[in-house]
Simulated scan of single mutants.
Amino acid sequence: MAETASPEFALDESDERSVLRLTGDWTVAHVQDVDEALREILPQFPLSIDVSGLGQLDTAGAFVLDRTLRAAGSVEDGVPDIIGDHPTARRLIAQVHAVSAPLPPPAVPDHGVYALLERTGEGFMDLLSETVETLAFLGETLVTCGRLLLQPWKLRWTSIVAVMEEAGLDALPIIAFLSFFVGMVVAYIGATTLSDFDLEIYTVELIGYSELREFGVVLTGIVLAGRTNSSFTAQIGTMKMRQEIDAMTTLGLKPMEVIVAPRVIAMVLITPVLAFVATLAGISGGIIVGWLSLDINPAVFIDRLRNSVPIDQFWVGMSKAPVFGLVCVLIACRQGLNVGGSVQSLGKATTTSVVQALFAIIALDALFAIFYMELGI
């Protein structure tokens, strides 16, 4: 085993230049012997390190030398000033310097009016860009689905049925469960409020209008936004991360036809079925409350519901269902296709998908309400 020489240094200052000449082995075992002395040197001129007489050098010695150069302010353009030849010194000191570079100071948040206006403008432009891209994706999806419907032999019926089962029928229990209890809550609130006016019997109309027109289809859309959107976005995003979509394109398959179109067709077909079941479950909850709390016989409840609530209220609710299903699946597929190569992007896309779908459902329901109000329905 070779004998280790203790590290030493000498500071030469001449011709407006300071040179730190190194000798011995600057390794972790002995570098502490010169650590304090190095901290005390105060060169008058820019400092350079002469490694011609340097023996062994490891990362501990390189760190001490890099720290000395930084303290002397002798690092120009991020490159330490090193002279002389050594097999590893120049490269090792440069590597240590790169990884130990000080972090830039954190940006100080600007809370002024100008910064507020700037953030508002950036948010508006992001919203505008997102809207344009979503509409472009909607157009591409409609063209693809229309072309496939004109050529039904190209439709992937197995994928369509599988999506209808996974995203539709499997969600049926939770949709019916939620709608049933929402119907009970609405009936209890109506009965409590109307009892002050001795008008408990009008709880039937309250349940009929609210469930047929609003709650059944809106609850269906909300459940789909939370359950199906996250599932679709995660599935497509995982395929994107694993480069399965790139491989699909290489094989001559179109992702819009293989991935997006089956999901769109399946959701447009199955969402009205889910909304219908949700409506029936909500009305059932109202019937239970009317029977137990208001002594309204179920037969009387159903007969009054049929005579007092027009059938067009049912079609108003059903007309929203395909639109809600289409919006949910469009947002889910688009966000899934936007996933990058990291897990963080997958989580962000899934969250964005659910939030956008919930917002879109509430906004569209408000637009539908205004539209039908103008039509007098």
Rank of each mutant, 00 (worst) to 15 (best):
E3G: 03
A5T: 07
S6M: 09
P7E: 07
E8C: 09
E8H: 10
E13H: 06
R17P: 00
S18C: 04
R21H: 12
D25L: 06
H30M: 10
Q32C: 03
Q32D: 13
V34R: 12
A37K: 12
L38G: 11
R39I: 07
F45N: 15
L47Q: 10
I49T: 13
S52H: 05
G53D: 15
G53W: 04
T59E: 08
T59M: 06
A62D: 01
F63T: 15
V64N: 11
A71V: 11
G73P: 08
E76S: 07
P80H: 07
I82P: 03
G84S: 10
D85V: 13
A89R: 11
A94Y: 02
S100A: 14
P102D: 00
P109D: 06
H111T: 10
A115K: 12
A115L: 03
L117W: 14
L117S: 15
M125K: 05
M125A: 14
D126F: 05
E130K: 10
T131D: 04
E133S: 11
A136C: 11
A136G: 14
F137M: 06
T144L: 07
C145R: 08
G146S: 13
G146R: 11
Q151P: 00
R156A: 10
W157G: 14
T158Q: 13
T158P: 04
A162S: 15
V163K: 05
E166M: 09
P173K: 05
F177V: 03
L178M: 15
L178R: 03
L178F: 14
F181G: 02
V182P: 03
G183K: 06
V186S: 05
T193K: 01
F197I: 07
F197L: 02
E200T: 14
I201E: 01
I201K: 01
T203N: 13
Y209G: 02
E211S: 12
L212N: 12
L212D: 07
L212V: 00
F215Y: 09
G216D: 06
L219D: 01
T220W: 06
V223P: 02
A225N: 04
S231C: 11
T233G: 02
A234K: 00
Q235A: 14
I236Y: 06
R242Q: 10
E244L: 06
I245F: 08
T250F: 03
G252W: 05
K254N: 15
P255G: 04
P255Y: 02
V260M: 08
R263C: 14
M267Y: 04
L269C: 15
T271F: 06
V273T: 09
A278F: 06
I283R: 10
V289S: 14
G290A: 00
L292F: 13
I296R: 01
P298C: 06
P298T: 05
I302Y: 05
V309L: 00
W315F: 11
S319D: 02
V323T: 00
G325M: 08
L326Q: 06
C328F: 08
L330S: 02
C333Q: 04
L337M: 02
G340I: 00
G340M: 04
S342Y: 07
L346F: 08
T351Y: 13
V354G: 10
V355D: 03
A357Q: 05
L358S: 11
A363N: 02
A363Q: 04
L364G: 03
A369E: 05
Y372I: 12
M373W: 04
M373P: 00
L375E: 01
G376E: 03
